[in-house]
Nucleic acid binder design. Structure first.
Length: 557
DNA sequence: GCCGTTTTCGGCCCGACTGTTTTCAGTCG
């Protein structure tokens, strides 16, 4: 058994936590496992070293029991406690637990009274009106459960892009050590940067006669012979509609495009790379992110492919949290981490006062944070460091659409990200008016994670997105592309519409830790899918241009 | 399960919302 890394161990700790909760264990014990899992994910040194040097217990939140479990999970891939819990708590019950509105108590109640241990049983019970017979269940909840089952079922078959990246990287790492493997690259939805991935896949070119690697059950390896890499890459990357369009285009030219190779009228073409396939067919290279359907090929052929944003176009970080609210690193540490990424500014953006669960900022903390920000700016200037801290806030949008502070407090910020964190259950019309009203507020600079979706966990609230985009455009409010891998919200399918309406977008990581700052790259990935160019993105402005943008916005208030 | 001590137990983030709850438990962010 290969040694498990920190992320894999974190997943297993999470699993222990979930299963423990479904045995009715103390919520605090459950939280201890989840906290330990979170901590492992933010580690910035290899887990192997921590285990070897027995330093795990140095971390707050990891005691003797969890340290022992981490060691065992790391070395053996399992632990007796996990094995016992897997016997005790059926997998199906974990699926039931994922239905929004069903917490541990209700899941156990369903099992104990109706014998429900999986989604199928839950669906049957809901369809035959059994849930409403239970204490604490209503017709409304039953309907909501039925509505969610399909979403949870579909989610179970997919993983987040960031997880697929991890699996693919690991597989490629293994393949590099394989002497028969000449080269390997990620393909499929992962290469197209889809926000969730059904199948993680890698293409590997092997020496003829080389022994092919065994399946690891996590990332599929497609093997090809030398010379086929270019065409095989195209077919493995998909999407099917795009590939079909390419085949038809080839046919029109009297050529034949198959996974095994490209044959032109003049004979077989050498296609060692995908670029050569495009070239041989006279098609400008289509970035994988755009290959969702035939439309991208049309754009390529008529020369209208967008000049997609790249990671280097992002010049700084806006919307990210610190220890002033629910972030894990201090303001200064975040600034230094952003500088280390080669970026030019940090727009601190902690939660506002209503977000008490997240330690939202009361006025005294705002003052303290602003004093520290100004001190940092003065110190950077004195040292001749080209770096700037902007004073922002992530203001809750209250139920009536107003922001979370009076105007005289709001005007002290350089910028305001307005986001919904409560009352997800409003009907579409009410929710739309609420969010649109926030967009009309002259203090709002950016509209944060517009739909509130959490990928594979929760659909967004009901919202007329087009109407909200119109409100943003009319008021010069930038629309966030929240780059957190679990959000990626606004969805890339709306980016074109947003740009057509005249909205500026803003790629923001919403980081709560130092490693999460780099999530802005996921924002760039989906922005590319959405056809976004550098000039469409607020954070492509440098610090000076951004300061001007903020001043211009504030002049409206 | 972790932690801190006024140290070996008792608290652990907390406020809002929902429902059938007539005073609170469950869920969520």
């Amino acid at each position: 058994m290969a040694l498990l890394d920190a992320n894999e161990v974190a997943d297993l700790l999470e699993e222990i936590g979930d299963r423990l909760e479904l045995t009715g264990e103390s919520p605090f014990k459950v939280r201890a496992y989840r906290n330990a899992a979170d901590l492992l994910r933010e580690l910035n040194e290899p887990l192997a070293e921590l285990v070897a040097s027995r330093r795990l217990m140095k971390f707050p939140g990891i005691g003797e029991a969890i340290a022992e479990k981490i060691s065992s999970l790391h070395k053996k891939g399992t632990h007796p406690t996990l094995e016992r819990l897997r016997e005790e708590v059926p997998d199906g019950l974990l699926d039931v637990f994922r239905i929004p509105g069903l917490g541990p108590k209700k899941v156990l109640q369903l099992r104990d009274t109706l014998g429900i241990e999986d989604l199928d049983a839950l669906e049957r019970a809901a369809q035959s009106d059994k849930l409403v017979t239970l204490k604490g269940f209503t017709a409304k909840m039953q309907a909501k459960v039925l509505e969610s089952i399909g979403f949870v079922r579909a989610s179970a078959k997919r993983i987040l892009l960031i997880e697929a990246d991890f699996l693919a990287r690991e597989r490629i790492h293994q393949l590099k050590a394989d002497p028969g493997c000449l080269r390997s690259e990620v393909t499929g939805e992962t290469r197209r940067r889809c926000e969730t991935v059904g199948e993680t896949a890698v293409l590997a070119e092997f020496d003829p006669g080389a022994k092919l690697p065994a399946d690891d059950g996590r990332a599929r390896v497609a093997a090809c012979a030398p010379g086929q890499f270019g065409t095989k890459m195209l077919f493995e990357t998909g999407a099917p509609d795009f590939v079909e369009a390419m085949m038809r285009h080839a046919e029109k030219q009297g050529a034949k495009l198959t996974p095994e190779g490209l044959t032109l009228k003049s004979g077989p073409a050498e296609t060692p790379t995908e670029e050569r396939v495009f070239m041989a067919l006279g098609v400008p290279f289509v970035p994988p992110e755009l290959r969702e359907d035939a439309g991208a090929l049309e754009q390529a052929l008529n020369g209208s492919l967008p000049d997609l944003i790249v990671e280097k176009d992002v010049k700084g970080i806006l919307h990210s949290h610190t220890t002033y609210s629910d972030g894990q690193a201090s303001l200064e540490a975040m600034c230094e981490a952003v500088r280390a990424l080669g970026l030019g500014y940090y727009g601190v953006c902690d939660h506002s006062q209503s977000a008490s669960y997240a330690g939202g900022l009361k006025e005294d903390k705002i003052k303290a944070q602003h004093a520290e920000a100004e001190k940092l700016n003065a110190a950077y200037e004195k040292k001749g460091v080209a770096f700037r801290v902007f004073k922002g806030i992530e203001s809750d949008i209250r139920e009536d659409g107003s922001l979370d502070y009076p105007d005289e407090v709001l005007k002290r910020f350089d910028f305001v990200v307005a986001s919904v964190h409560s009352r997800f259950d409003l009907d579409e019309k009410t929710q739309t008016s609420r969010v649109a009203k926030a967009a009309q507020n002259p203090f709002t600079t950016i509209l944060g994670h517009m739909t509130g979706r959490l990928l594979l966990r929760r659909t967004g609230y009901k919202l007329d997105i087009a109407r909200v985009l119109e409100a943003c455009a009319a008021n010069g409010v930038a629309v966030e592309i929240n780059a957190h891998p679990v959000r990626l919200d606004l969805d890339w399918r709306w980016h074109t519409r947003a740009r057509e309406l005249g909205c500026l977008l803003s790629i923001n990581p919403d980081a709560h830790t130092i490693p999460e700052l780099e999530h802005y790259r996921y924002g760039v990935a989906v922005a590319r899918k959405g056809g976004v160019t550098a000039k469409d993105n607020l954070t492509s402005l440098d610090a000076g241009e951004l300061a001007k943008h903020f001043s211009a916005r504030k002049a409206r208030t």
